[in-house]
């Protein structure tokens, strides 16, 4: 069941210049949340922004009724959200979409930029199943990766940057441990990265799930604005995604 409700910001953390994390508390118990699901955040007091903004659920603490969002500042909406402080309220519609399957016993989670966000809760959910994933986080430079120590307890964390400022130098798909024999891959990040990861997975026959970030208006399957082309025709990323099996995405694996 989806909800629309106010949360209170209980913690705001700036993560370098481009990212911040907000931990939000609700007075009531949170509904069940699957890794990969997202929220639609209302942006108040911003003349340029009317529509809500979709943001992944980065972390959940059901014993404290909190969830955490990890946000990259890219435009008016996210810039306005960055001005919020502890004690402020934030209205959310959540939990939305269809999350990761949590399949595999030796999974690789690959994240780039803000696409790192859903991977923390995903790693935790794998741990709840007794599976320790490998987590590969990438970006152009160290500044563009929201480094989160929070990942460390939940898996083996690897980094790659194009300038070598953190971890191995190069793209995530060039990392020496990218080619280890994983039995499942989950990825979220810039489209070219997800395409490269997806192509590799398909080539090797490794099941692969990608989390798409299409532009959304409603987030609940009502407007049909957010579609992606699949082998079964147009599907709403907000409802049938954002997580898709890569082999279902028509055109996604073509180099274009």
């Amino acid at each position: 069941m989806k909800h629309i409700t106010d949360f209170t910001i209980v913690c705001r953390e700036q993560l370098g210049k481009h990212y911040f994390a907000l931990t939000l508390r609700h007075p009531d118990l949170l509904p069940p949340i699957a890794a990969g699901q997202f929220v639609e955040v209302e942006v108040r007091n911003c003349r340029e922004v009317m529509l809500r903004r979709p943001i992944s659920i980065h972390d959940v603490d059901s014993s404290a009724n909190t969830l955490t969002l990890l946000v990259q500042i890219v435009g008016n909406g996210t810039r306005q959200l960055a001005t919020l402080n502890e004690g402020d309220t934030l209205n959310l519609i959540y939990p939305l979409g269809h999350g990761f399957s949590l399949l595999g016993n030796n999974p690789l989670l690959v994240g780039g930029g803000a696409g790192i966000a859903p991977l923390l809760y995903l790693a935790k959910c794998y741990n709840d199943r007794g599976v320790r994933p490998t987590i590969l986080l990438g970006g152009r430079t160290k500044e563009l990766i929201p480094v989160r120590e929070a990942f460390e307890p939940y898996g083996k964390v690897l980094y790659s940057t194009e300038d070598g400022s953190l971890g191995e130098k190069g793209l995530v798909t060039q990392h020496s441990l990218f080619f280890a024999p994983y039995d499942h891959i989950c990825t979220c990040g810039p489209t070219p990265m997800m395409k490269a990861v997806g192509r590799y997975a398909v080539e090797k026959g490794i099941p692969c799930e990608v989390s798409l970030e299409n532009m959304m208006a409603c987030g609940i399957g009502a407007c049909l604005c957010c579609v992606t082309d699949t082998v079964d025709g147009h599907k709403c990323v907000c409802k049938e995604g954002p997580v898709f099996d890569v082999t279902k995405l028509a055109d996604f694996l073509e180099n274009k």
């Binding site: 003349r47 340029e48 922004v49 009317m50 529509l51 299409n214 532009m215 959304m216 208006a217 407007c223 049909l224 604005c225 957010c226 579609v227 992606t228 082309d229 025709g233 147009h234």
Partner: peptide, 23 residues
């Protein structure tokens, strides 16, 4: 009907443009 290709939506001042195309 499949409707129009993505992208089909853009936010504009106090409004939005859509080109869903009767999916």
């Amino acid at each position: 009907r499949q409707g129009n290709p993505y992208p089909r939506m853009a936010e504009t001042p106090s409004g939005m443009l859509n080109a869903v195309g009767l999916q």
